[in-house]
Amino acid sequence: MNAEIQALESNHTWVLTELPPNKNAIGCRWVYKIKHRADSPTIFYAILVYVDDIVLTGNDLTEIKTITNLLDLTFKIKDLGDLKFFLGFEVSRTKAGINLCQRKYALDILRDTGMIGSKPVSTPNDYTTKLHQHSGSPLCDSDASSYRRLIGRLIYLTNTRPDITYAVQNLSQFVARPTTAHQQAASRILRYIKSSLGAGLIFPASNTLQLKAFSDSDWAGCLDTRRSITGYAVYLGSSLISWKSKKQATVSRSSSKAEYRAMASVVCELQWLTYLLQDFRVSFIQPSTLYCDNRSALHIAANPVFHERTKHIEIDCHIVREKAL
């Protein structure tokens, strides 16, 4: 501020004079604003830190080396080169793109549970049977603890295995009182994992920068609470970057409401991903696209005339309509 005032005075921007009678002076105010990229150079880098493990990326190799040397002077780090393994994630890079999987982590689960020699199956769960709290007989304390530990490890595996997300979510709601039926279903997931150990995510080197989301719900899918299950998948171009399977917080009296709630969840996810990708300097030319197979939910999102049909839907769900307009 002082430098600005001195510059104005040195350039004789004004001349001090007496205020005329019956006149009021116009006040002034200093407004501060952060000026991003004031030097215009366009270098970007990002640092991911987990305890004592660090992943560093950016668009300028020289800048990355400079930061690496600075970190080494301060913390004495060890540079392991290109990212290949991080917190159980295996990263392989080719000209076609990047492959992300947890093969070693999955193998460790199979060895620890004694399922390494089990017979593989083609699906993670039996879609003809729905589990509930009283399916089967209660497990003893030691088996129940093993079940809870296994579900926790499987939840971490879903970071690269969206194909088991629904099955794992279904079994995770029984950790308080697991039964033999739940344990048998968990074993089936392990048998499925054995049939697809190397499965994971592929991020192509060439891709379009548009967010696309697919939303769905299993109306009253929970047999114990009759709550619906939300499911969605978000793609950046052809790359799957976000997915979820989760039981809704309240009971929906219609399939339209359940589908609309699922749409609300994915809209919030799209909004968050938009902010995140903007921080990574990803610019969007086209708006995000949301796909849903329920026509009633689509009409509610697009047309506020459906007043009588939407009075029972909470205000926070109408974020779908707000973003669509």
Rank of each mutant, 00 (worst) to 15 (best):
D216P: 02
Y156V: 08
Q278H: 08
N303C: 03
I313T: 01
D112L: 01
I164N: 10
G97R: 08
F214N: 06
R261G: 07
A46G: 04
N170P: 10
L270K: 03
Q6V: 13
M115Y: 11
A213G: 04
V282D: 01
I43H: 12
I116W: 02
T17Y: 00
V49L: 14
A46N: 12
P21F: 07
Q169I: 04
S196A: 14
A7V: 10
G81F: 02
G136W: 09
R226L: 09
L8V: 04
R188G: 00
Y50H: 13
A38T: 07
K104N: 04
Y105P: 12
T66P: 02
L56D: 05
K246S: 06
L290Y: 03
G200E: 11
T274F: 06
A199Y: 09
A176N: 07
T66K: 05
P204R: 12
K33T: 15
S142I: 05
R281E: 12
T225S: 15
C292M: 11
P138D: 01
S217H: 11
L8N: 11
W243H: 04
K212F: 01
E269V: 02
I116Q: 12
P138S: 04
A25T: 08
Q184L: 11
L276W: 12
Q6R: 14
H36L: 04
Q210C: 11
T129P: 01
D52M: 09
T66Y: 04
A233L: 01
S145Y: 10
Q169G: 15
K130C: 03
H307Y: 08
D53N: 13
V55T: 13
D60N: 15
P287K: 04
I315K: 00
I300L: 14
T310N: 08
D141Q: 13
G88E: 07
